[in-house]
């Protein structure tokens, strides 16, 4: 076994990762503190900014890395069956509301620990179907595809060869949550990371994770622009639906299969 021929030849791209990480950190840290003042406030430009950041820091490096080993990564893009697509869509919709609960608990915990961060500004209001569909493309579809390829595709495969057991899932989820630079959203993001890693592990298809991610981001955009929180009753209902769907998704089917 020749150890040096590890298929994912990331060594050639080490510097790319480092540059990406530095840019990502600078952009992430400055987004709220420094750069925001130069951006037109509450304007559509924010969406363009999000999309460009996702594309150049995460999406394009991920695509380039995957193209280097086309045959290796091709199986990750197999088409999932309709039943699991349906379940994942339901999970995404219900979880995006249930995540509010996680965030509320998380923020309460932070505050009781004496950590107070100002709440981030709401996303800009959208007027008309054109702006809305552009926002979905820029802030839901582009980030979802880029992040899934990078985190659940490349990073998870890179780490699971190097970590024993299932540690890779937790590390990927942690990095995923960290790189969103959201103190308030950390808990929910970490949870989403775990869920998506498990999903890709179980169903071996990035498409399911991408579908979940797109739907989740879209609903966050809709909720933010509506600027109204769903009722507590609805949130708990969604949590119930989400947990039930997760059970169906991850249940261990059957015992012995005679063929």
């Amino acid at each position: 076994m020749t150890e040096q021929v590890v298929s994912i030849q990331l060594s050639k791209y080490k510097s790319l990762f480092l540059v990406g990480a530095v840019i990502s950190f600078i952009l992430g840290m400055t987004q709220g503190i420094w750069l925001r003042q130069f951006l037109p406030q509450n304007d559509f430009v924010v969406y363009v900014y999000v999309a460009l950041q996702e594309l150049f820091v995460i999406g394009i490096p991920a695509i380039l890395l995957m193209l280097r080993k086309k045959d290796l990564y091709k199986p990750l893009f197999t088409k999932p069956d309709t039943w699991s697509i349906g379940l994942v869509a339901l999970a995404a919709v219900s979880f995006s509301l249930a995540a509010i609960l996680i965030s509320v608990i998380w923020i309460t915990l932070l505050q009781s620990a004496g950590i107070n961060f100002p709440l981030p500004a709401n996303l800009p209001k959208l007027s008309g179907p054109f702006e809305f569909s552009m926002a979905i493309l820029l802030a839901a579809i582009i980030p979802a595809v880029s992040e899934e390829m990078m985190f659940r595709g490349l990073l998870q495969i890179f780490l699971r060869n190097r970590l024993s057991g299932r540690k890779d899932i937790f590390v990927v989820a942690f990095i995923f949550a960290l790189l969103h630079f959201s103190v308030h959203g950390f808990a929910a993001l970490f949870f989403i990371g775990l869920f998506l890693s498990m999903l890709v592990n179980r169903y071996k298809s990035l498409w399911l994770a991408i579908i979940f991610h797109i739907l989740y981001n879209s609903i966050v955009i809709i909720l933010q622009t509506l600027d109204s929180l769903p009722s507590v009753r609805l949130i708990f209902l969604c949590l119930g639906i989400y947990l039930a769907v997760s059970y169906l998704l991850f249940q261990k089917k059957g015992a012995n299969v005679w063929i």
Binding site: M1, V5, D71, P75, L76, N161, N201, K204
Partner: peptide, 15 residues
């Protein structure tokens, strides 16, 4: 070892 060997011929074990 199996994972490393599969990697060396360009195959993901999950596939």
């Amino acid at each position: 070892t199996v994972t490393a060997a599969l990697n060396s011929i360009g195959v993901l074990p999950e596939s």
